[in-house]
Amino acid sequence: MLGAHCPIDQTNNAGETALSFAALFGRLDMLSVLVAHGANVNHVDARGGTALQMAISQHNTAAADALRQVGATQ
């Protein structure tokens, strides 16, 4: 995606971004890369949630901690 020249916060129909998918699928190494390219760590999806909220609701402490490390606050 980084080489595709599309907006870094491009969303799918559910409002999810590459950053939220990286957190969801355990690609925690990609979080800092996406943020360095301008990804919004507090992006709100179509359901009103953020990647951090999703990680917390799934009891995924590794993803929640990694998101906080790159600046997620919501």
Rank of each mutant, 00 (worst) to 15 (best):
Q74R: 15
M54H: 15
F25M: 14
I8G: 05
N12R: 12
V70G: 01
D9F: 02
T50H: 09
M54E: 14
Q10S: 11
Q74D: 11
N60P: 00
I8F: 08
C6F: 05
L19I: 08
N60W: 05
H43A: 13
D9S: 03
L34A: 04
N13R: 14
D29C: 05
M30L: 14
N42W: 10
A51D: 11
A51V: 09
H43T: 09
M54K: 13
G26E: 03
T50D: 11
A63Y: 05
L2V: 10
G3W: 00
A22V: 00
I56E: 14
A23S: 06
A22E: 00
G48K: 12
G3Y: 00
R47K: 12
G3D: 09
D9I: 09
D65I: 03
F21M: 12
G49W: 14
A63S: 11
G3M: 05
D45N: 15
L34D: 02
Q10R: 10
A46E: 07
N12L: 08
G3S: 06
Q69N: 11
V70C: 02
H5S: 14
S20D: 04
A23L: 00
G71E: 03
A23R: 02
V33K: 03
R27V: 08
C6V: 14
T61L: 15
I56Q: 13
A62T: 12
S32N: 11
L19P: 07
A4T: 07
T50K: 03
P7E: 14
E16H: 14
N40Q: 08
Q10D: 13
V35T: 07
N12W: 06
T73H: 12
Q58H: 15
H43K: 11
I56W: 04
S57M: 01
T50M: 07
G15I: 05
A39I: 06
T50C: 02
T11S: 06
P7Q: 11
G3T: 00
L31C: 02
Q53F: 06
L28T: 07
D65N: 12
H43P: 03
A66N: 11
G26L: 05
V70P: 02
D65W: 06
G48T: 04
A14S: 15
V44Q: 09
G71A: 04
N60R: 03
G71Q: 10
G3C: 01
H5V: 09
Q69F: 01
H5K: 14
A18K: 01
A4E: 13
R68K: 11
G15H: 07
L34M: 01
H37P: 02
L52H: 00
S32A: 15
F25N: 14
T11I: 12
P7A: 13
V41H: 08
L31M: 00
I8D: 05
C6T: 13
A63L: 04
A18W: 07
F21Q: 09
G38D: 05
L34I: 08
A18C: 12
D9L: 07
V35K: 11
G49P: 04
A22N: 00
N42L: 04
N40F: 08
A23N: 02
M30I: 03
F21I: 01
